[in-house]
């Protein structure tokens, strides 16, 4: 099946990283195609966040190879990742609480005037424009993001990724802090991004959510990849069994 979809957007091959003798990620290989959402599941400490941080540039892997559209790439820091159109939405919401939405959206990539000064007015106008498309209810443009609700903060983070033409999106529990309505909003956003041909890695604890939002699910345990399954071919119980027992269900291994 993989062959007729052409070159994968991302190929993680044989990735390993250890911290102080503990293998956090142990020879894991995983790929992602355009327009696809791959869920990453596992217990806390299973290594899913660590694996994905090698792709986002937050960590440097000890061994292994990352290929984007078939080409080997070096990702040593978040700037490298951004230059490959990889955007990350972190579990901890990497926002500077004391700055407003526009400053956060453009953090590290500010629009400047010809004099080299930060052009706040233009950035706020751009923020208003894209927010109008993604979250029309958003109003608090001039308050620091510490004054925003969880959902509003999440929409700032997602808007940041979308604005800068992400091709590969990494979402680390994007709905963990959200109410049902806001979760629905994020789910719709993910469908929209899929249609636009983005590849999305979605880290989540919620098996139901993964079945609903993702095309494939990759399960990790103790730093190792248990298996990758098509979500439509398995039940939530099968996935749970993989997470807990660390073994692929028998009817799939055949």
């Amino acid at each position: 099946m993989a062959e007729d979809r052409g070159t994968p957007l991302v190929e993680l091959e044989d990735i390993s990283i250890s911290f102080g003798g503990i293998k956090a990620v142990d020879h894991v290989s995983l790929d992602l195609y355009p327009g696809e959402v791959v869920g990453l599941l596992g217990h806390n400490g299973a290594g899913k966040s660590t694996l994905i941080k090698c792709l986002s540039g937050a960590y440097q892997m000890d061994s292994g190879e990352i290929r984007i559209r078939g080409d080997k790439v070096e990702i040593n820091n978040p700037r490298d990742a951004r230059s490959h159109n990889i955007e990350t939405i972190y579990q901890t919401l990497a926002l500077a609480d004391n700055l407003d939405a526009a400053s956060n959206l453009f953090l590290g990539r500010e629009i400047t005037t010809p004099l080299g000064l930060v052009d706040d007015a233009t950035m706020e106008a751009e923020t208003r424009k894209i927010m109008g498309r993604l979250n029309p209810n958003f109003r608090k443009f001039s308050s620091p993001v510490s004054a925003l609700s969880g959902g509003q903060r999440q929409s700032v983070a997602i808007t940041r990724a979308v604005y800068f033409n992400a091709k590969i999106l990494i979402m680390d529990e994007p709905t963990a802090a959200l109410g049902p309505q806001e979760t629905q909003m994020v789910a719709e956003l993910i469908q929209e991004l899929k249609r636009e041909g983005l590849g999305i890695f979605l880290i989540d604890h919620d098996v139901h959510q993964v079945k609903m939002l993702c095309d494939r699910a990759a399960v990790m345990k103790n730093g190792k990849l248990v298996g990758v399954v098509d979500v439509d071919a398995v039940s939530t119980d099968d996935i749970l069994a993989m997470i807990i027992a660390g073994k692929k269900p028998e009817h799939l291994t055949a």
Binding site: P78, A96, N98, L99, G108, V118, D120
Partner: peptide, 22 residues
């Protein structure tokens, strides 16, 4: 009004966020 200043305040507000923003 400068990036330098913006980064100073961003780093003060959330050093991790500043780092992850490149």
């Amino acid at each position: 009004r400068t990036r330098f200043g913006r980064y100073i305040f961003a780093t003060g507000g959330n050093p991790d966020a500043a780092d992850l923003s490149g």
